Simulated assay, not measured.
Amino acid sequence: MRGIDRQELLFHTLHNQYLLEKGRRLDVVSGLCGLQAQFANNPRYALRIRARDFSEEAWSGGLLKIWSHRSTIHVIREDELGLFLSAKGHNLAWGESWWDIPVKVKPYWAAFIREKVAGGIDEREALKRECRRAGMEEGLLKQVFHGWGGLIKEMADRGLIAYRPGTEKRFFLPEEPAWMERDEARLVLMRRYFERFGPATEADCAAFTGYGMAEVRRLLRRGCLSLRSVDRGGVPHFYVGRLHAARSLPGCIYLSGFDQMVMGYKDRSRFMDMEDKSFAVNRAGIVYPGILLYGRLCARWKKEPGRLSITPFRPLSPASRELATEGGRALFGDERLEIAFLEPCRP
C-alpha cells in the first residue's frame, strides 16, 4: 500500500467532489449521495458551485427532498427515491413511533393528506388548515406536522409524499419507489461514497452514512466494490477508480452550507485546521458556508441581496482578500456585488 501526502489527498478529494471540474447537475446530486438541505438554499448553492448546467430557474428540476441518511433532510434525484428509502430500511407497515400518533389513525390521515395534495393543496400550512377543518384535534395536528417530522416524515419514509426543493414548504406525490433490498441499496451508496469522497477511511464512511463502523465493515466484506487503498498516517484510505495526478490547487474555492465536502468525513484535517472547527461549525451543529483559500478552510460567507459578507477565521492577507473577492463575484456572476469583510473570528 503506497503512501499519500495531504496535497495529493486534497487534490483527489476536490476533483471527485466536482470542485475542480464541474459536472452535470443530476450527476452531481447522484454522485454526492444527495445534497444536505436543512437550509433550503444550500443545495442551490452547492449546485451553483459544482454544476456546469446550473440555472436559477431550473436547478431543482427532477429533484425532491426527503429525510435520507443520518435521518437528515437531503435533496436527491426523483428517479433514485427507491434507492435512498431502501437504504434506510424502513418497514412499510404502520407502527408505533415516538411522535405519539395512534397507529390506527395513521392510514386515514395519510390518505387524507395525499388526497389533498393530489387535489392541488400542497402547502404545509394549507394542509394543516384542511386537517383542522376535517376534525383533526389540535394535539394530533401538532404531532402530524411536528417540526422534526411527525406523520409527514413517516409518509415520506414510505414514499407516499415528498417535499419539493426550494424555500417554500410544498409537497407532491412522487412516483412509486423502486424498492431494493436494504444491503443492496446501502452498497450502491457506499460505492458512490468511496468513488466521490475517497480516499476515505471506514470511519469517514460510517460518519457520513450513519451506518456505524460494524455495519460498514460487514457490508465491505459482503460487497464487491473494487476498492483500492492508500496509506495516510498509517491508516488505510479507500477509493474507487484511479488517483488523479496532483496539480496546483485553485487559490479560492467556495463551499455551500452543510457542504458534502465538509459533511463527508469524520477526519476533516485534509482541508481544515482543527483549531478552526468552532468557526466552521457552531455548537448547534450548523455548518456554515465556507471558503477554501490555498486548500484550507479559512473563512465563512453569507449572501444577501446585492451583498456578500465574509468572516475570516483569522486576519487575511491582501492577496487572500482579493482571491475571496474575485471568487465571490465569479460565483454569483455579479461584478457589482458588494463584498464586506467582517471582523475575524480570531485576531
Rank of each mutant, 00 (worst) to 15 (best):
F172G: 03
L160H: 02
E168L: 10
R158D: 14
D157C: 05
E176N: 07
P177M: 03
H146S: 11
M155S: 01
G166Y: 11
G150F: 09
K169A: 15
W179V: 02
G166V: 03
R158A: 13
L151H: 07
A156L: 14
E154V: 01
A156T: 10
R158H: 10
F172A: 02
G159M: 08
P177W: 09
G147M: 07
E175K: 14
R170H: 10
R164H: 13
A156D: 05
E176K: 14
G166L: 12
F172V: 02
W179E: 09
L160G: 03
A156P: 04
K153F: 08
A162K: 01
L151Q: 05
K169R: 14
P174M: 05
A156W: 01
R170L: 12
E168Y: 05
P177R: 01
I161V: 11
F171C: 09
M155K: 04
I161C: 05
M155H: 00
F171H: 06
M155C: 07
W148T: 12
D157G: 06
G150R: 05
W148R: 12
A156Y: 02
E181L: 13
G166W: 09
L151G: 13
T167Y: 04
K153A: 15
E154L: 14
M155I: 01
L173F: 06
E176C: 01
W148H: 08
A178N: 13
A156I: 11
H146E: 05
Y163K: 04
G147C: 07
G159R: 03
A178T: 07
R164T: 15
G159T: 00
M180D: 05
E154S: 03
D157K: 04
M155Y: 04
G149H: 09
G147N: 08
M155E: 02
A178P: 00
A178L: 08
T167Q: 14
P174I: 03
F145H: 07
P165T: 09
M155N: 06
L160Y: 10
K169G: 01
A156S: 10
A162I: 03
E168R: 14
W179Y: 12
P174V: 05
R182D: 00
K153C: 08
L151P: 14
R158I: 10
P177T: 00
P165R: 08
G166N: 08
H146G: 00
E175L: 04
E175S: 11
G149A: 11
I152H: 01
A162E: 03
Y163A: 03
I152R: 03
F145Q: 07
F171D: 06
E176W: 02
G147I: 07
E181D: 11
E154R: 01
P174A: 04
A162G: 02
W179Q: 09
I152D: 06
E154Q: 15
A162C: 15
K153V: 02
D157T: 01
E175T: 11
R182F: 00
